[in-house]
Amino acid sequence: MLVKPLLHEALCNGCGLCLTVCECGALVLVRNVIKIIEVESCGYCTECELVCPTGAIECPFEIVIEDSIEITIEE
């Protein structure tokens, strides 16, 4: 399953800054709260996280060594 940015809806103030920087159209405001509608097109650029003034969007990274990814594919 494709990992998407984490949204904390309670923190969203509906300012829409994230929409202005999202180049892939993955985000939308629904009743003044941000939602991710197109997960497949989200490239995880983290720009939305960067501009969010309230910390409502987080883009956490897994840190892995290359070998362990190969193990995942084999499994």
Binding site: E49, E58, F61, E62, I63, I65, S68, I69, T72
Partner: peptide
Amino acid sequence: LLLEYATDHGRISEGEGQRPRLTQQE
């Protein structure tokens, strides 16, 4: 930091909840 996390936490055998994901802010 990346080296420590790749070594200490970046094993697939660990459960998802045991493997911290870090934001760039963190």
